[in-house]
Design a protein around this nucleic acid. Structure first.
Lengths: 123, 123
DNA sequence: TCAGTCTTCAACCAAGTGGTTGACAACGCT
DNA sequence: AGCGTTGTCAACCACTTGGTTGAAGACTGA
């Protein structure tokens, strides 16, 4: 199921430390130790983070003696982008359609009224 | 600051049920009850899910008597897309740069740290 | 072979998450 | 006023998660 991977990818990127690592890896490959360096957490914790990223398919690891260089897999990003774009466009399209519809009937009551939304929690 | 919201957005979309709701809301606004209908979980659970989506800024709620119609906020998707695109492009760019570089020096070993990956195991 | 380096595995812990049920606030309808 | 509807809040529970420490596997180098 593709859905499952999508969940893993989103979950993986929900953590700021892991997003940071992705940013670091976008610059170039790095070993676990090199990735762990900037943070003051244990190497084991970083190793776990990498495992999460790898399970999501965002990162792959190769072997270099004891080292395990991490490499960013760019393709998986497409999976996300596709999902996002799909619903963003759909929503915006609907928005536009609605605008013209409201423009037409101006004052008629449809059972869906957008427009008067009011964000509750804004800090 | 912004980083925090990005975390919330990714975390919100890591749940398949919530992604499903976003898909549903992309078609048109819906009340909590309408959103809860397709799933066999309690309305309270759905209410919680919506709260998560709302906290992430993906959804807003308006008032219609007792009802709380949910509305998809398309703008926040851009935040994600921007983040994703940034690192995807960066990684792909690096990839291309590396390819031509390797093509040039074919076997020469540079001491520029991030160049020495072994990349033995591709899928 | 033996010490040192790099990484992962295993067990554990505090905090967070998705689910439940019960209570209740807010509202429309008789 | 009283009832049914809609949604949220609060407390609780099982499970996951991000962190820790300790041990061990895999490899290099003397």
């Amino acid at each position: 199921m593709d859905d499952d991977q999508l969940s893993r990818v989103f979950a993986a990127l929900a953590d700021p430390t892991r997003r940071d690592m992705v940013a670091r890896l976008a610059v170039g490959d790095a070993t676990v130790g090199q990735l762990a360096d900037p943070y003051d957490v244990s190497v084991q914790a970083v190793s776990k983070h990498i495992k999460v990223l790898a399970d999501a398919g965002l990162v792959s690891q190769s072997k270099d003696a004891q080292r395990r260089p991490c490499h960013l897999e760019a393709e998986v990003f497409d999976l996300m982008t596709k999902w996002i774009e799909r619903y963003r466009e759909q929503a915006q399209e609907r928005y536009a359609r609605l605008d013209s519809l409201l423009d037409e009937m101006r004052g008629d009551e449809r059972r869906t009224d957008h427009r008067n939304r009011q964000q509750g929690a804004a800090s």
